[in-house]
């Protein structure tokens, strides 16, 4: 399960490597928007924006719905939350490792002290 999780997240993090895509997410955080609404502030063509949207969608970070001829995009909360959880897991994993290291270090000290006696 962790593997699948990691694989999906790999796409999510890659998707976020681009500043335009991060800005698109920031815009969508305020509410859904159409491609032309998204293209406006970026001084980019609609096909260029569509390409970015495709990457975000494949990464599970946004989704689209049909509304007549329009296809407004919105944030996919599950994808965003998965990233949050992954970061929390990283941190927790690291903390857990260092707690174990405390024990390893304590065990390393003991034989040394006994020898000195």
């Amino acid at each position: 399960m962790l593997m699948n999780f990691a694989l999906n997240l790999d796409g999510a993090f890659s998707a976020l490597a681009d500043p335009t895509r991060r800005a698109i997410l920031a815009r969508l955080a305020k509410g859904e928007a159409t491609v032309s609404e998204l293209a406006d502030p970026f001084d980019m063509t609609q096909p260029a924006i569509s390409q970015h949207l495709k990457v975000l969608e494949e990464a599970g970070l946004i989704s689209q719905r049909a509304e007549g001829t329009k296809r407004p995009r919105r944030l996919e909360r599950a994808g965003i939350e998965a990233m949050d959880e992954w970061l929390a897991m990283l941190r927790k994993g690291l903390e857990k490792s260092y707690e174990r290291l405390d024990d390893v270090l304590a065990a390393m000290e003991k034989p040394k002290k006994e020898k000195r006696r």
Binding site: A12, F13, S14, L16, A17, D18, P19, R22, A23, L25, A26, L28, A29, K30, G31, L75, I80, E81, M83, D84, L87, A88
Partner: peptide, 24 residues
Amino acid sequence: DVQTRAMMLASGMERGMEASYVRL
């Protein structure tokens, strides 16, 4: 870059992602 920039997500987000932002 990918990870670091992912962290940047937090500072780039507003309102709708506040919960996420706070957690990050």
